[in-house]
Design a protein around this nucleic acid. Structure first.
Lengths: 183, 183
DNA sequence: TCGCGCATGTAAGTTGTTACATGATTTA
DNA sequence: TAAATCATGTAACAACTTACATGCGCGA
């Protein structure tokens, strides 16, 4: 349901192709909403059908044509309406936390290795978001509502990745203090 | 995929009915894995088919019979194998953060009301987890691996709800400093 | 020349949600 | 007496994932 509004939000900022929308959701909005390119293209087809978006064909030599999508008035109205409608919190489904619930099966070496991989990802994401903050939100005080609220979404991403990093250190300590080896 | 292992993890602790499994996932494991009762029953039927679980019929007077499920050796082996296999991080999809990205449509009063509702939920969940921690994990140092790792999952839940509460205060402040009213 | 980035999609399968359906016991 | 809790499911739909498919340009 909300993928629709994720795409409309992106297009509200600027027209874009399906490919670019997918990139934006993966990169700048990675801590907000994610979509595979397959999902994006399917949803764009639907939005076109509902007349929430239109597109302009931009021919290219060699590459396939770029379909540059943009919001219609209907799309903008529906987005505004959705934003002002309460939504419920998403349900948590986290395989990493689930593994801790069956942690007596989890061998120390494997736990350590898995956390090491995630820690690299968390650190990389954190660095990326901090770079965005330094580049665009160095002085949030004076900025208009639109940017200040976007900044709060980014701050959430920064905070989340920081806290995963801190938490995982605690887990590694517990794992070392209470080791388990294979058979 | 992982709903299977969520159910197996619960059953590893103790045999349970589909109803009880759903309750456990909603309550004690709410910050780890969630499942509706419909999903639970469907998955249990599959697990029965795969011979990862068995059940015992416990007749009751008045109420329908309780089907008490428990792990088979195969189920336990598959769970152990899964725990030791790396998994990738779930992709974020959060409507609340998404709304901030189209925040110039979001009227201050509506934002405030939505956050107020979520804050009540976050506070209630936090209190619940703190109560569980006080009751079962007052002295984690001396506990065996199994419990200490479960405690780390709970700590994550506590931390997450705390940080939502702190973050939402910041958002409310920004919202008040940069108000938007309907037309 | 091999893989990556750009750029578009289709098809099949799995997972999750919402609606429907039943019925006794306990609590307000 | 009405609603919540216990206890089980079926059916239809929506959302998401994985695999398949194409093809040019560019840099190593």
């Amino acid at each position: 349901m909300a993928l629709k509004f994720a795409l409309l939000s992106c297009l509200h900022e600027s027209p874009a192709t399906g490919y670019e929308l997918t990139q934006t959701l993966k990169e700048r909005m990675g801590n907000v909403w994610n979509s595979s390119h397959q999902q994006t293209y399917r949803e764009l087809a639907r939005l076109l059908d509902e007349e929430c978006v239109t597109f302009e064909d931009v021919p290219q030599t060699g590459k396939p044509d770029r379909k540059v999508y943009s919001l219609t008035d209907l799309g903008r109205r529906e987005l505004a309406e959705w934003v002002n409608t309460p939504s419920s919190r998403p349900k948590v489904r986290d395989p990493l936390l689930l593994k801790l619930f069956a942690g007596d099966f989890w061998e120390s070496a494997n736990l350590e290795e898995e956390l090491a991989v995630h820690r690299i990802e968390w650190q990389a994401t954190l660095d990326k978001y901090l770079a965005i903050e330094a580049r665009y939100f160095s002085a949030p005080e004076g900025m208009p509502r639109h940017y200040r609220l976007q900044h709060m979404a980014l701050r959430r991403g920064i905070e989340v990745n920081r806290s995963w990093l801190a938490w995982s250190e605690e887990v590694l300590a517990v794992n070392q203090a209470n080791p388990k080896t294979g058979r």
